[in-house]
Every structure is written in structure tokens, then in C-alpha cells.
Design a protein around this nucleic acid. Sequence first.
DNA 1: CCGTTGATGTAAACGTTGATTACATTAGCG
DNA 2: CGCTAATGTAATCAACGTTTACATCAACGG
Lengths: 226, 226
Amino acid sequence: MITFVKYVRYCRQMTSNSPPARASYHHGNLVEALLEAAIALIEDKGVESLSVREVAKRAGVSAGAPFRHFSSKTALLTAVAEQAMSRLTEAVSAELKTTGDADPIAGLRAIGQGYLNWALANPTHFQVISSRTLIDFHGSEKLVAENEAIRLIMEKLIDDARRRGLLRHGIEIEDLIFSSRAFIYGVARMWIDGHFLEWRIERPAAQAMSAALDMFILSIGAEVAQ
Amino acid sequence: MITFVKYVRYCRQMTSNSPPARASYHHGNLVEALLEAAIALIEDKGVESLSVREVAKRAGVSAGAPFRHFSSKTALLTAVAEQAMSRLTEAVSAELKTTGDADPIAGLRAIGQGYLNWALANPTHFQVISSRTLIDFHGSEKLVAENEAIRLIMEKLIDDARRRGLLRHGIEIEDLIFSSRAFIYGVARMWIDGHFLEWRIERPAAQAMSAALDMFILSIGAEVAQ
DNA sequence: CCGTTGATGTAAACGTTGATTACATTAGCG
DNA sequence: CGCTAATGTAATCAACGTTTACATCAACGG
């Protein structure tokens, strides 16, 4: 029996088939390796043409191995999204910290800038996060919680700005929270979805985004403050 | 020979298999039937789980038949997108006509409102249009041209508003064109992508969208005009 | 040091997909 | 009627997600 197994392994090395050279039978840290492989492959070929088989191959394991750790392709991508959301939250928080408590509108702008910068630098991760068909957003407590955390920070900043009279007269708080989010999301998605070409955005993407953000921030501010 | 063929057809009717009852061998108007079937299926199950086989089955033909008329799945969806873009342009134009030339800002708002109304009423079509992976946008002259047409109308309205002093001081034209588009796109996509839940938009979608649009329009206007 | 056990990998299979091919059927036209 | 081009069919292919039965190995108790 053992001879046969060794023979099979020998043949595998000779034909150099799917699972290539690996030190031991067990991978060691397959979960992380799969997440990394998934990101790398999405960066190469896009989200929709990602296959679990290729992820497995890149990680150096057989096609069925990923299903030991993720119940489905969706579960794998949801794990990628969780990792991505952590980094996004981190990036936004870091940018926010560069502003003081004195100017909530500057804080709001920092959130937008941090969000856009991160999306620009990590389009793949962003794409995975914002999808609701590839991942199971509401099935992940982490995703829901971190998303809510950002929303609460924005809500607090906007409410703070209102109390200090920094907002333009006539603007409803509820509308502004939603609008700010929609605006940033729209800018980021237009870039991700490749709509910059059609809209003749000829400046570098980061520059166009930043200018648009400046305009938005300017327009919601009180006239006297400008 | 003929007897055999008739027998086969008879059996097919009995077993009620893939190509079901149809008057003649040729369909008559397969192209339109396929487009309709595609839309109906996307509405049922979403864009990403659409298969050409199902489209063919729904249209009452075999799995390979669609490829006589569309070179690929992408080509089929691009045709759907062209049909959709026509209707979007039509909806936006109709909404725009309800406003006079006197108030370009009202025209801008009408464009946004028409766009959002249409997206809300035709989420499937909207999803197909805005995708750049499912369809070949830049390969379709029609899509590029109609998109550009809308952009030009917006540009003209905004420039008109600037000359009449209706815009808030400090706003750059170029930024405003892009920002307006990004804002509307963001609102529509947040709804399409199912982000309303997480952002606690508890009002009816149409109402929340309209309020956000009002806020945006208000914020870009000159203070004196309000 | 041996044997059991559970975690983790493999290989093979199943049903479905997008796409291609060779072939069958038909409508339209002379 | 007979020819041709258009149109539909059926068989086929590789790739996909997923499941299954089985193989391997690390850890641990005796």
C-alpha cells in the first residue's frame, strides 16, 4: 500500500500537476494564503472572473481544499471583505485624526478623503466590500458593525457642525448624512466602474476626486464660514 | 426520413423538453424575444446569475440559438444596455422638458430626478447600463453617444447657471459637472447595491432620494437665490 | 513507542455554465 | 420546383462550484 502511495507522489512530481511542490501534506496556514491568493487574482482578472479553483491552485492546494475552511465561494469573499473593511476603517480613522475637534467640517472632509484615497489604492478590496451579491454583508457581524461605526462618526461630526452653525442654512441633518455618503460612494464607484473615461475626467483621478470633494464640502458650509 | 423527424417532434412535445411548442421551426423575432427574456430573468434572479441557456429556454429555443444573433453573452447584454440607455435618455429628456429655460438649476434638478426615478423603476436596466464588465460599453457607439448627450446637456445647463450668477461663489464648473454626476450615480447605486439598509434610510427610497437631491441642488445655488 | 482521533489535504465525480461545431430545417426567390 | 442563405438543433468542450470518499499527518493517551 505504502509503495503505491509513494509511487503516486512520484508521478505527481514528474507530471508536475495541480498541487505543486509543498514541504508537507498540510499547508500550515491555508486560510491566509487563500485570502492573499484571492486578492491577487482579483487584481489580475477582476472580481467576476474569480474562481475558487484558481485561488486553490495559486495557494498550491487542490480544488476542494478551500471548502475545508470556507463553506462557499461567498464565504471566502466575505472573509476578504472583512479584512478589507478593517483596513478601510483604519485608513479613515487615521485621516480623521489629522484634524482637530475644533472643525467638524474638516473632519468630515478628512473622512471622505481617507475613504477615497483608500479606494483608489485598493480598488479590489473596495469592490469586494461594496458588493452585495458576491459577499454576505448582513451575515457578517464585523462588516455591519464597522460600517455602522463609520456612519456614527459622520453623524456626530455633522451634528456638531450644525450646533456650531457651520452648516449652510436650510440643510437637513438626515439628508446631509445620506448625501455625504452617497457622494463619496458615487465618486469612488464611478472610478471603480470605469466611468471616468466617458465623463472626460482628464485630470489624474486622485486630483479630480479631491477637487470634487472640496466642492462638496464648500457647498454645504455656511456662507460666513467661507 | 420525414416520418422520423415528425416522430421526434412528437416526442419532444410529449416530454415537454427544452424547446417547447412553437408554431414553426423558425421563431420569427428571436432577437427581441431574447432581450425581453433576458430582462425578465435578470429581474427574477439578478444580473450575475443570468445564463444564456435560461434566456434561450425562456424564449423557447435551444441553448445555442442565441449565438446566431449575439456573438457572446456580453453582446446580448450590450444590446439590452442599448435598449435601456434609450429609455433612460428618453425619461431624462421628458423630465427636463417640464422645466423652462429660465431656470437652469431647476433643469439640473429635473435631470437628476428623472435619472433617479428611472433607476428606481428599472433597477435591472440600470444595473446593466452601469456595468462595465457585463457589457462592452466603449464598443457600442450608441451607448457612448447617448451618454455623451446627457453630459453635454448638463454642461450647458451648468454653464448657463454660472453666467446668470445662480451658482454659489467659489464653485468650479468642471468640478460641479463631475460632482453632480457622481452624486446622482452614488444615490442610485447605493439603492441598487442594497446599501440603504445599512445607512438606516427608513423613508421610502424615492422620498430619501428626492430629499437628498433637493439638498444638493440647494447647496450649489447662490445664497441670494434661496 | 504504538494506536486512535480529528483536522486537513487529495482525487474523482456531478450538474451547470458559456461557447463552438456540424448538421437540419425553412423561407424566400428565380 | 430547386437553390441558397438564414436560422435553429444537438452534441460537444473546458471550466466552474460543490460534494464525496479517501489519504495523510499532528497530537495525545496509554
